[in-house]
């Protein structure tokens, strides 16, 4: 078994040995989706005209909710795990073995992406089964979710390079995700924002993830969705590349 597949296998086992993770990754998102679906699903009259027929208000908000979930989960998992392993000395031990930090990061990016998608899949499936939401997941939206997870995992790695304790890492990743949510047009229309916040919207990666998901899942505008996918993937490569380039588990 290769070092990458070993880390991948045991990172899943480690995650599921801790039963609270099952609540965090599966039960909590499912309950959230069911609650929001129930509450917002009935608000059909607030649907924009261009939304696909048969959709309710929750279906319309779903791309934004998925984008926010990906932002928070990806960044927090990466930053939290790295800060924890560095603090506890796990990295010091790993650095004495033949596994390189690149191999470890490669394994973890796969694991964090699978876990995020699995978590979303369970929540969406439960909401579809119980309250009949219309997720409209397709190949572009799936690729956007993968690219988005990689992007925000990269952000989490970047944060963990500068922040050395878990509490601070949580505050920074969650705080940033919250700010991005406000300035990405997910819940508040961009046109109603002050001009300087509208500029922030243009540089927020969450804007493109959210818009891309909306284009692919709601409006069916494949051209826009592909453009957003390329932007998210490009930003992902940039952020992930910088995060990984700065990542070192040696303590020289």
């Amino acid at each position: 078994m290769s070092r990458i597949s070993t880390d991948l296998k045991y990172s899943f086992i480690e995650t599921f040995n801790d039963k609270t993770n099952i609540a965090i990754f599966f039960i909590f998102p499912t309950i959230l989706f069911l609650l929001l679906g129930n509450v917002l699903g009935g608000l059909g009259s607030q649907l924009p005209n261009n939304a696909a027929s048969g959709m309710n208000y929750f279906d319309f908000l779903l791309p934004g909710i998925l984008a926010i979930f990906i932002t928070m989960t990806g960044a927090q998992m990466a930053a939290g795990t790295i800060v924890n392993y560095r603090k506890s000395g796990v990295f010091r031990k790993l650095a004495t073995t033949p596994i390189s930090n690149m191999e470890w990061i490669a394994a973890r990016i796969v694991m964090w992406t699978i876990l995020t998608l699995l978590s979303l899949a369970v929540a969406i499936f439960a909401a579809w089964l119980i309250i009949g939401i219309h997720p409209n997941i397709n190949l572009i939206s799936l690729l956007l979710m993968v690219a988005g997870t990689a992007l925000f995992v990269g952000f989490g790695i970047l944060v963990a390079n500068f922040i050395k304790n878990e509490g601070a890492a949580f505050t920074v990743t969650m705080g940033t995700a919250f700010l991005l949510t406000l300035v990405s047009g997910t819940f508040i229309p961009v046109e109603t924002m002050p001009w300087f916040l509208q500029y922030l919207t243009k540089i927020s990666p969450l804007t493109y993830l959210s818009e891309g998901l909306r284009s692919s899942m709601i409006t069916g505008n494949t051209g826009n969705a592909v453009t957003d996918l390329l932007i998210v993937a490009g930003l992902g490569i940039l952020l992930f590349g910088v995060g990984v380039a700065l990542f070192d588990w040696k303590e020289d």
Partner: peptide
């Protein structure tokens, strides 16, 4: 070589 680093810790949630 084999190494037991100072303040050794392994993966908390693995056996």
């Amino acid at each position: 070589i084999g190494v037991l680093p100072q303040d050794f810790n392994a993966f908390e949630w693995l056996t």
